[in-house]
């Protein structure tokens, strides 16, 4: 082992001094992750050189990288996941991803002039870290958005967005459960509704 590598290892050991078994997600790492993803998003949203369509596509690309879409999709389907056939699961995940990206990209894409600050001291829930941001727009009261970050495959990923106390994934779970229950307890009813919404 060369000396430089050894120093590198020592530095690494010094940077993560605690419990390698649960090394997982530290509040600092989650905060840095949200800071970086947020800056990237805000830069795209406020880039006046982009057309609406370009802006949406770039926002979508950032979201695909930062959100644990499959994990959120399974969480949102909840108890109906096991009930669905493999084909229904696959179709659901495909539709869910498209719907989530479209809704969020549409919502974020319209926030011209947006700025945000990341709050210190994130909350911990179970294994996850909840990072709060204060989002401001000209002429609008500031809004608190909280990002629940989990470690997925060794990387921090967003698993929930909490707006003024309302969790997006819990809300979507109720919404989808209502659609399925009212559609005769069939996941296919949800897939059909998603297809209709996406114009497929």
């Amino acid at each position: 082992m060369r000396r430089r590598d050894l120093y590198g290892l020592l530095l690494l050991a010094w940077l993560c001094p605690i419990a390698p078994a649960r090394a997982a997600l530290t509040p600092a790492r989650a905060t840095a992750f949200i800071q970086a993803a947020g800056e990237e998003l805000v830069a795209v949203i406020n880039d006046r050189g982009l057309s609406t369509e370009e802006r949406r596509q770039r926002v979508a690309a950032i979201l695909r990288r930062s959100v644990d879409i499959e994990g959120v999709g399974r969480f949102v389907l909840g108890r109906f996941w096991r009930q669905a056939s493999p084909a229904e699961q696959a179709e659901y995940l495909r539709l869910f991803e498209e719907s989530l990206i479209r809704n969020l990209a549409g919502r974020f894409g319209e926030l011209q002039g947006v700025a945000f600050t990341v709050e210190r001291n994130p909350r911990l829930i179970e294994e996850d870290v909840v990072v709060a941001t204060i989002v401001t727009r000209p002429g609008q009261p500031p809004v608190t958005l909280e990002w629940r970050v989990a470690e997925v495959g060794g990387q921090p990923r967003i698993v929930d967005l909490i707006a003024e106390g309302a969790s997006l994934r819990l809300t979507q779970r109720s919404e989808y459960a209502a659609v399925i229950t009212r559609g005769g307890n069939q996941v296919s009813a949800l897939n059909a509704a998603l297809r209709r919404q996406l114009g497929q």
């Binding site: 919502r107 106390g165 819990l170 809300t171 919404e175 209502a178 659609v179 509704a193």
Partner: peptide, 28 residues
């Protein structure tokens, strides 16, 4: 408007959002 545009069941969405936000307000 956002709910009308994006929700598959606006009734269920409004119920979930309002209950959570109110509970969070009281918790705060």
């Amino acid at each position: 408007d956002e709910v009308e545009r994006t929700s598959l069941d606006p009734y269920a969405t409004i119920r979930a959002v309002s209950q959570q936000q109110r509970a969070a307000e009281i918790d705060r």
